[in-house]
Amino acid sequence: MRLCVLGAGAVGSAVVELAAEHGHVVTAFADSESAVVDADGIDADAVLSKKREEGVVGDADPESVFDADYDVLVEATPTTLGDAEPGFSHVERALADDRDVVLANKGPVAERYADVRALEAESEGTVRFGATVGGALPILSTIEDVGPSRVSAVYGVLNGTANFVLSRMAAEGLDYEHVLAEAQDLGVAEADPTFDVDGTDTALKGVIVANVLSEGETEYTLDDAEVEGIQELSGSMLDLAAEDGQTIRLIVEVADGAVRVGPRLVPENGAVAPSGTENAVQIEADYCGRLGITGQGAGGPETASAVLTDVERLAD
C-alpha cells in the first residue's frame, strides 16, 4: 500500500521507518510546517535525519500531501480535544477522496465518532483506529473479533505513565511528586504529563472503546466520562492498600453504557495491576468469559506496528 503519513512525532516517524519492512511505500510525509512527496517512495532515512537535524521533513507545503498518490492516510498528529482539529479535517479530506484512513490520533474517534462514521459511510474509504487504544495491544481488534455486542465490560490500565508512577510509589513508598520527577528524568513521563496523570488520556481511550461497543447507538465524547486523576494520591495510601494485599492503579471501566476513570483498589498481583509502563486490559464477553491482554502498549515503534497492522487489514 502507498501511505501518506501526517505527523512526524514518535509514532509518525516510526511508521515511516518501519513501512518498507512491512512491504509498504510512503509516498507523502508531513509535519505541521513542512512536507515531502515522492510518488516512488520517500527516502525514509534521509527524511528522518533531516527532521532530526533541521526540524523539517522536506521543502514542500504540508497541503501538497493530499494531492499525492496514496492509498491510506496515516493520521499521527497530536491528539486534540473538542473539535479534534486538525486531525479531523485530515480524515475528512482523505475520505472525500475515497482513501482509507488509519488513526494513531485519538481525537477524531474520541470526540467526533459519529461525524467520522458518517463521513466514512459516504466514502469508498474505511477508517481503522486500533492503535488509539493500548498501542500495540490488540484490544480493539479483539473486541471486533468477539463482536462488540457480545462484550459486556472492558476495564483495566491504559496509560503507561500513570501506571509507572503508581507502581514505583507502591514499590518504593515514595510520594507522587518525587516519582513523577523521576519518571520525567527517565523519559517515561513527558515534560507536561497532565493528560497522563489527570486521567484524560485514559478516558479518551475508554470513550473510544465505548463508541465501538455501542455500535452507533450512543455517541460518547470525553464529556461523557467520569474522570479522576492520580495527582492527589500519597505513598501512605499505597502502603495502606499493600497491607491488605492490594494496590492502587489508574483504571478505566467501560460497562453499562458508562465510562469511568479513576484510581481503584485492585489485587496486588492481579490481572489489572501490571508493572512499570505496561498496560493491562480485561475484556468480558458472553460465552468466552474474561479475556486478558497485557503488555507494552505505547511507544513510537509499538504504536507504529499497530498502525501497520491496521494497514495490513485494509489491504486484505
Partner: peptide, 10 residues
C-alpha cells in the same frame, strides 16, 4: 475527602 474505590466492574 478523597475516596479510592475498589474495582467492582464485572
Amino acid at each position: 475527602l478523597q475516596l479510592v474505590e475498589p474495582l467492582t466492574v464485572g
